[in-house]
Design a protein around this nucleic acid. Sequence first.
DNA 1: ATTGATAATACAAACGTTTACATTATAATT
DNA 2: AATTATAATGTAAACGTTTGTATTATCAAT
Lengths: 347, 347
Amino acid sequence: MNSKINSRVRLEDLARALKLSIATVSRAMSDSSRVKPETKQRVLSKAKQMGYRSNQIAKSLSSGKTNVLGVIIPRYDEPFFIEVCRGIDYYVRKHDYRILINSSRNSFKYEKENVLAFERGTVDGVAMCFTHETNSYEHVEELIDRKMPLVLFDNISHKIDGAGHVKIDDFSSAVKAVEILIKHKNNSIGYIGGTSKKSVFNQRFDGFVEAHKKHHQSFKTRHVLNCKSYHQEHEFYEVFNFLSKLQDVPNAFFCSTDNYAILCIKALTKLGYKVPQDIEVIGFGNLHYSNMFTPELTCVSQPSFKMGEKVAEMLLNKIDKGFFISNTDQNSEIVLPTKLVYRDTTR
Amino acid sequence: MNSKINSRVRLEDLARALKLSIATVSRAMSDSSRVKPETKQRVLSKAKQMGYRSNQIAKSLSSGKTNVLGVIIPRYDEPFFIEVCRGIDYYVRKHDYRILINSSRNSFKYEKENVLAFERGTVDGVAMCFTHETNSYEHVEELIDRKMPLVLFDNISHKIDGAGHVKIDDFSSAVKAVEILIKHKNNSIGYIGGTSKKSVFNQRFDGFVEAHKKHHQSFKTRHVLNCKSYHQEHEFYEVFNFLSKLQDVPNAFFCSTDNYAILCIKALTKLGYKVPQDIEVIGFGNLHYSNMFTPELTCVSQPSFKMGEKVAEMLLNKIDKGFFISNTDQNSEIVLPTKLVYRDTTR
DNA sequence: ATTGATAATACAAACGTTTACATTATAATT
DNA sequence: AATTATAATGTAAACGTTTGTATTATCAAT
């Protein structure tokens, strides 16, 4: 069985040493009003002396609470997700919770595995962002059926009944960004973005389209690139290839992430264009390294840390209340504001 | 007590439904040879039908194993640490483990809290990197006393008896990098790095000194900067200030991280210098975005993902063996090789 | 049929807590 | 001194597993 039992101090050991019952010791440790101050003091100092550490597993089994939140992100190596995790962590620590992060490695299969793992009782609630592959939702619906508090964030194409939703308005944010480019008298604007399988990217592209429509301007399909690659280097070549083959390079680009914007600028520079003098570029995200580049990137700033905090807040509320905020409830969805950060890649 | 009991299917429910004992059902679920194939089949299909999910908490309490590894990193927002986590995660998943990441937020106080949390039985082992503030080690020694398998990585100034150690050779890597700059006939080389409180930075600086000594070349103390800031923007101004005040800007810089190298290049560019034509720069780390900058960064490549894998391997070995690889054991330390990646910031 | 071996299953304790309920101690009131 | 209220502590069940040991079933050999 348990191989470490011999070394661990348990409530029982404290109880024996103090000639008290386990119950009293337990209550003393949790500062219950039912044990007298003097006894509490004795227990506490004995606990310290004997190096007692409560067994969180036993506590969890008994109380039905783990004080751990599960977080499922599509991948580790995208700073946005880490930033959201940081926000979640920051918030929940104040409430004595910890987070267990699982990456889906960009695969629906792993996403399902991760959800399954969280059905095993190791977490009190789940925060989650879908991969680009996800287009069926039985796995999360089952999670909800099992009464697991769930909050979804970012990349939401599809509202899930019983889950909370935290996102930004990708569509209008994109509209605003592209409108800037239009107002700057760019009559030919290109779009470079990630896979069209990902809902957020589609919404940002739709915003790109909408801005054109709104201002009675048109764009060329050949100026639109939806990248398929996942590795940094491949992505760069995809962007570079795309741009180098164009006869008529647009005067401006709207990119669906900062990463694409940076790659776009790099490729344009390589092709002899100057940003922003010849061509303007706007990114999306505002990663912490976006202002380390020269020229510093103009972009839509996405409140990733804040998003994490909101996700956490919503999730802890759900856990607390012990019931489920319904989809019709105004609290089931939070849309966070974005803002445009003007830096050096626009004029 | 537990508020979810009503909904959860337990072994007992399966047992009752199948008119079997809990023990048999438990054994069937874990594919024990003591239960006959036909019964196993019945159990499995009933489990599926009733939507049974084993309770990991109960399992852990009973078996003394959580199948979770604790990982303590100084901070989330440094891609190096995330990359190490990714390596750990990648390795341990193959062995049915998960990781619980805790950030110390660059503070020794939180680091101790994190260690304490892991003494509560929620993890089977701990992987950890010290913050720059850490210079006392009772907390980890206590962890070891409590028989917790422990592997330290990166930033190790001080060997801890009973712990495993995984690192790179910061000193020689720095020597090699600076030697390149010397071979390129740079007779004046500067150093820009992080806080001298952090062991890895000291070791890299010592390498910088050693390379000079080895080649009978000297450097000026006024060409050395140990940054004190922690925020991206402050860091930039610190670097920019430092450089703008110099009468005699060196012909080359060795920076103790990629980040400083990038900030250094940005500052130099702002001051009108061309990299690498006027001034060469070498970074340290090889972050995934180091080659997105123009010019692409020449740097010492640190095998962060690999480091994670090695940490994980060592930790699982310790857990398996159930005993402690002593410090004298050759297996208690792994030093991973680095390599110099030549890109565009050197000639 | 009886015996014996072994396969299959059952019983019950253990893991370390929490907590409802029961008991005992203490102090205030008569 | 007896009664009562309440403060303090104790007893034991429960949380859902695993696993050592005990029991029963099965079947081959006599």
